[in-house]
Design a protein around this nucleic acid. Structure first.
Ligand SMILES: [Mn+2]
Ligand SMILES: [Mn+2]
Ligand SMILES: [Mn+2]
Ligand SMILES: [Mn+2]
Lengths: 218, 218
DNA sequence: ATTTATTTTTAGTCAAGACTAAAAATTTAA
DNA sequence: TTAAATTTTTAGTCTTGACTAAAAATAAAT
């Protein structure tokens, strides 16, 4: 059994491993968890003893297969709860994350299986992130950053990279939500800003925004 | 803000206060929480500092109004989650308690309000226990122990005193669930056992069982 | 009214998980 | 290939919440 703290470390490493094949540095984990590198070293030793990470001093850590499975299950729970909050309890997509951070640690396999069924076995959470299955596998849909689209290309909004409530509320304000069709009307060379059309409305979008919105090309 | 441990102490005191007006002894709390009296003394000092209990050395503790409100809210959450598990996730009444013990500590007022609404503002949990409202008030229905019924009296089963899974599974096996009508056919003097009828079936019930079943007299 | 038994508190320890400051190892730069 | 900068680990401390053993207070019994 794993403590809440251990689970959070596993999840942090899991997320960091998505971007790289290399071992995850103590500093990277510390930053992800807003803690100190020395604390990370301590915890990594415990996780190593429990066979969920492999640890070579000064070389960073990697999740073992067991570690990956446990971490994926926490992510699975987090994202299923986010779906529940949006679909059943009328939360908006910018309100769910903090509550899901708590709910993801509830231990009950039956609870999560039944929740999955209640929700109709969703494949993605309210931010477009894939929900791992019971074995920890996740099917990735092909998606591109809005910033990679060229003039006159059309796509459907399928996810966000940054899912901070600030960004999500900004998107709400602009009328951009998952499923909306986006057309690139113009691309400015000097600042990479975009002119786009969403539901007949023209919007000007900075490069920062375009770099945080995932689109499925049509 | 209260820690998980503090919340469990408050809840324990809350439950113990239902049966008495007097201060709750350290030993009673220790037993309720399966911990040691010395640990209770430590924690009580913290709770006293936080103004949720009043504490006089050697005299036991009482919840303050604030303490009562906080404790009632935890009980509210516990019982609403139990309803959710039974009504929405097809748990049986003997499976919900342990999961609710975890879920009751999730902090999100919106979550619990929306859950309340989703469930149709239930007044009682799956064991017949009343659900405190937002202000911590609970409406008690008048109920009696089955053991207090006389021969030929009829009642509806409305709750259990012991809600251990062993007892609940025993009731399931006998076909006794909330809402069922129970008729007392016979009362044995020498061991206070009962002969009862539930849905046309005759059952023999020990005094221990009859002392743990609440009945609404008709 | 003492003595005895029980309850409660204090004193001292421990483990988990965090932190700071200093030492050691590694990487980068000169 | 040394020297400087960066990263990582170690050593030592702190807080929370638990425990045991002993002391103190209260309650019960003679
Ligand atoms: Mn999230
Ligand atoms: Mn999400
Ligand atoms: Mn319960
Ligand atoms: Mn209950």
């Amino acid at each position: 059994m794993f403590t809440l703290s251990e689970e959070n470390y596993l999840k942090a490493i899991y997320h960091l491993e998505i971007d790289t094949e290399k071992g995850i540095s103590t500093n990277a984990i510390a930053e992800q968890l807003a803690t100190k590198a020395s604390s990370v070293t301590d915890m990594i030793k415990k996780l190593s003893d429990k066979k969920v990470v492999v640890y070579k001093k000064y070389k960073g850590v990697k999740l073992t297969d067991l570690g990956k499975k446990i971490a994926a299950n926490i992510v699975r729970k987090h994202r299923l709860w986010e779906v529940f909050l949006v679909e059943k309890l009328n939360f908006s997509w910018d309100e769910v994350h903090d509550v899901a951070e708590q709910l993801e640690h509830i231990k009950s396999p039956k609870l999560i299986n039944q929740l999955d069924a209640l929700l109709g076995f969703p494949t993605h959470d309210p931010h477009g992130d894939p929900i791992p299955d019971k074995d920890g596998n996740l099917k990735t849909i092909d998606k591109s950053l809005l910033s990679t689209l060229s003039k006159n290309e059309i796509g459907i909004c399928v996810g966000v990279d940054d899912s901070s409530s600030e960004f999500l509320q900004f998107l709400d304000k602009k009328g951009i939500t998952l499923g909306k069709q986006i057309t690139v009307l113009e691309k400015e060379d000097f600042d990479d800003s975009l002119s786009i059309e969403v539901e007949g409305k023209k919007l000007s979008i900075s490069n920062k925004i375009a770099n945080n919105l995932y689109i499925k090309k049509q």
